[in-house]
Structures are given as C-alpha cells and as structure tokens.
Computed example of a mutant assay.
Amino acid sequence: MKKLILGMAIVASAFVFAQKDANALNAKLQEANKAAMAAYDAKNYAAAAPKFIEVYDLLKSSGQDNKIYMYYAGLSHALANNSEQSIKIYTDLVNSGFTGVETTYTAKEKKSGQVVNFDKATWEVMKKNSDYTDFKTEQSKSIETDLYETLVSLLLNAKKANEALVVIDKGLAKFPNNAKLKEAQTTAYLQSGNTEKFVAGLKEQLAKNPNDAVSWFNLGVMQSKKPETVADALEAFKKAIELKPDFADAYQNLVYTTIGDDSKVVADINALRKDKPDEASKLIDARRERFAKALPFAEGWYKVAPKNIEAVTALKEIYVVTKNLDKVKEMKAKEAELSAAAK
C-alpha cells in the first residue's frame, strides 16, 4: 500500500480582531493555536488534532470559515493513525470543494516587530493605524490534489475500496492525468475483487511507464492465476527481474509458476504407478523437465536471498528431482544452519 501523502507544512499564525469585544476570543485563539502547534511540533498528533479543530471553531464563531485548520486536524489525525476521524474530515473537505487556496493579509506591529494575520476587512482598516507597517498579501497554492490522494490512501488502508473508487473517479474527473490516483485506482480494483479492471489498469500503467518493475510483477501474479496466461506471467516476472535484479519475490514466483501445481502432479503419479506405469513415467519425465526449467530461477532466488529458508528449501527440492546429490547435501546443510539460527 502506498504511503500517505502528507506533505503540507503547518505554519503557526497569530490572530488579531479589531472588534472591541474580541479580547477574550483573541486570547482563546492564541492559546488554542499555540497548543496545537506545540503538540504538532512534538509529534503528539493525537493532541494536536482537536486543538486545530478548536482553532477552526473559534475562527468560525467570528465569521471566518477557514477550513485550512480542519485540514491540519485531518492531517494530524492521519499521522496519529486515527483513520476514521481523518477520513471524515478529508471527505468533508473534498465534498465542500475546499482547495486550500487562500489569501493571507499581514502587517507588522511596530512595537513588537511581530507579523500579524488579519481578515481582509480588518486589514484594510488597520492600514490607517500607525502602529502597523509592512502590509502584505500572499496567496497559497492549491492542496486539492493532496486532499484527494490522501483521502484515497486512507480509504484503501481502511479496506474501503468501493468508497475509494468513488473518490478516485471524482478526482480523476478534475485531474485526469494524476498518476497517483490512477495507480490507486488499480489497487482499489484489486482490493474490491475487480480483477479484470485491475489487470487493465496495470497494462495502462505499463504502457505509460514500462520500467515499473512492481507493476510487471503484479501483472505476472494476476496472469499466473489462469492457465491460458501462464506463459505471459513468466515473461512478466522475467521483465520485473530485468528491471530490478534483486527482486526476490519475482524469482520466487518464477520458480513456483514454472513448476505448477506439484502436489497434484505427485498425487496423479502415485495413482498411476501400479496400473498405468507408462503414463506415470511420462508424468515423471514432464515433472523433471519443469523442475529443470525452474532451476536457474531458484538459483537466482537463492543468490539474492541467501538467508531465506524458503528459497533454500525450494532449491534443495529441485536438486532432489534433478538428481544433483552434491547440491542436495549443500542445501540441506544450509537449511539446517538457517533453522538453527531462527530458534
């Protein structure tokens, strides 16, 4: 699963209201904002989230619906692994059309040198106040793609693939070339059991980025599930290894896909040995041939993962079938060594 997209920096703010009766509100805002920032900076995200919500609520009570603080709250909940709370906030933000684009209005207080944030109307009024200077405006960048990407990641992590697909469709309608949403869409198809769309999504990704080893591997996994596409699966795994030579999982899948359902073959051989020995012999020869084809893949797997006992055992069994007794002995010793080390 992809990591959450949590890249936006949180910037401390100071709040000033011009109303005569706003002193108490200002004090509460300063206190809540200070507590939120302190908790966030200390990585106490569970404590930061409700404080950011408090800042939002206090601002809203003064007529400022500044949803950036709800974004900060959702971000903090995500970092605290409070996924349900984070999902709710991000969903509300996406549905509200919030983009994060806002204009900040600041001025410097001459006496303290502190840069202070104002709402637009107050900022215009304060221009006449000789106690302030350096009046500036600044517009922030849109974080709308971040909202969609993070919400989708949260939903997929929570195994809510169908809900994720709804958000992805909505996001792609706005940002049709967003690679992260397209990749997430493929993951969501798999998670929801829609394997045909998952495979189609992988092929679409590979058409755009043929050097994506993980997508080649995932395509191979899906193709290996059907007898008619096993050959395609083998080629996909080989492509993954070509792009990522230490791709142990791709080597492993090459081994087992090449060998096939060996337990069934062995059962068939045992059932035929007595009454139909010739047919049993044909199955034995075909089995040995498959193991011989799997041998270089197993050796490659062992080379990139020499401490993986499953790789050692698989290689040992292939040497048994292909009658390489010296190598069988070597792998048995390695298997015993790894088993002892694991205790």
Rank of each mutant, 00 (worst) to 15 (best):
K174A: 09
L93Y: 01
D134T: 06
V125A: 15
T103H: 00
E144S: 13
L206R: 01
L202D: 15
F198W: 13
F175Q: 04
S112M: 03
K180M: 11
L181T: 11
T150P: 02
D146S: 15
N117L: 09
T91F: 01
Y148T: 04
G113E: 08
V152G: 06
E124F: 09
K128N: 13
A173R: 01
K174Y: 10
T106E: 06
K159P: 01
E163L: 08
V199G: 02
L151C: 10
A179D: 14
L165W: 07
K225Y: 09
S215Y: 12
S142I: 07
G97H: 02
Y148K: 12
V116Y: 08
F118E: 11
K226C: 05
S215H: 13
A184Y: 02
Q114K: 10
V167Y: 05
G193A: 02
K108I: 09
S142T: 11
K226S: 14
Q139D: 15
E144V: 12
N178F: 07
F135V: 12
K182F: 02
K182A: 04
V101H: 06
V199L: 07
A184H: 01
E109P: 04
D212W: 06
N177V: 01
K225A: 15
A121Y: 07
N194L: 01
D119G: 05
G113V: 08
A207K: 15
Q191A: 05
A121Q: 11
V116E: 10
G201Q: 03
L165D: 07
E144C: 05
F217N: 14
N129W: 03
K141E: 14
V221L: 11
T122V: 12
V125N: 15
S192N: 13
L147G: 04
L202K: 14
Q185L: 03
T104G: 10
I87Q: 00
V116M: 12
V166C: 02
T137K: 08
V199S: 08
N117F: 10
K226G: 08
V125I: 15
K120D: 01
Y105T: 05
V167E: 09
E124N: 14
F198A: 15
N129H: 02
E102I: 11
F118L: 13
W216Y: 04
G220D: 06
K111E: 12
N209F: 06
D92M: 02
V125D: 14
V166E: 08
L151H: 07
D212C: 06
E138T: 11
S140W: 03
A173T: 07
K110H: 05
T106D: 05
I87H: 00
E196T: 15
K136W: 03
T186N: 14
Q223P: 10
T186E: 13
K226I: 09
A158D: 11
G113T: 10
A188E: 01
A188C: 03
E144W: 06
E124M: 14
G100A: 03
L155E: 00
T186W: 13
V221R: 03
Q185N: 06
S112L: 03
N218A: 02
I168T: 04
K120V: 00
A164W: 00
V115N: 11
G97Q: 04
F118Q: 12
L181N: 10
A161C: 11
K136T: 12
L219C: 05
L219V: 04
E204A: 14
T106R: 10
A161E: 15
G220C: 03
T150S: 05
L155V: 00
G193S: 06
D92E: 13
G193W: 00
N129Q: 03
K182M: 05
K170C: 15
